[in-house]
Design a protein around this nucleic acid. Sequence first.
DNA 1: CCAACATGTAACTACAATAGTTACAGGAAT
DNA 2: ATTCCTGTAACTATTGTAGTTACATGTTGG
Lengths: 142, 142
Amino acid sequence: MNISSRFSVAIHILSILEVNKTGTNTSDFIASSVNTNPVVIRRITGMLSKAGLVEVKPGVPGAKLAKDPSDITLLDIYNAVNVVEENGLFGVHDSPNPDCTVGRNIQGVIVPLFTSAQKAMENVLAAVKLQDIIQDIEALEM
Amino acid sequence: MNISSRFSVAIHILSILEVNKTGTNTSDFIASSVNTNPVVIRRITGMLSKAGLVEVKPGVPGAKLAKDPSDITLLDIYNAVNVVEENGLFGVHDSPNPDCTVGRNIQGVIVPLFTSAQKAMENVLAAVKLQDIIQDIEALEM
DNA sequence: CCAACATGTAACTACAATAGTTACAGGAAT
DNA sequence: ATTCCTGTAACTATTGTAGTTACATGTTGG
């Protein structure tokens, strides 16, 4: 299992919108950079739009960032593309047997642990801004 | 997407082995506590056995912990049941276009970030011992 | 005003992982 | 030798992902 590449593709899309901000970034153009189908790009761009990260209008070619890159965190993007449910990173078997000491208590014990493990991961994402990604990309081009 | 419930089931299994250490914990018995099929339990127990966390022999009813509960961390269990590849929590789209500034650099930028996010999550798991789980379960019974 | 072009989205396919199930081979012990 | 258990192969159903085709809808320049 892994977290859907929608997340990494979304970061890729937003990076292009900033790096190539003077150009017209159509789904076809972005798709050729990501190396996928334009419909995949439009689907993800739609999610980013609903989350208020991107501005895009039917019929009007190209998309633009709706916010400054320093106001967008990786966690914002991660939430936008709906790759992991809130407190749902770890699957938990349901309906354990209440007639067993372990069965009737296991969920209450592990769910908070799973939640805090997930939060620790998400906190790392929250600490990185799109701006940092752009800077890293441009630094690699020097 | 979520991380397979094999992980939570494995924690459940190991907890039973400790809490009911004086009894004979067959796959049928454990399955009735987890509320699943005995084969599912045997599959997971097999993984835990390969990882050296459990002792089980063909033909001999029941399984036993191979280590002290204070020497088993949730990370050990997580690794044993193979729910997430090393550095593979986040899926990354492959073959982005090298003719594009973003395309040729995006992977180099995001992979280390993904790795550190994953590690942060795994560090939380590493900090919890099976012994802690057992204590929490028993505390809830008081 | 309409032709050309882009976005939005439904519908379908292929593929992989998960979880449950049946069936049965093989080991252990009374 | 019978009985019970573990190990495992094989199959199913379900779900999520990613790619693709097709087409309706919206915009704009000539």
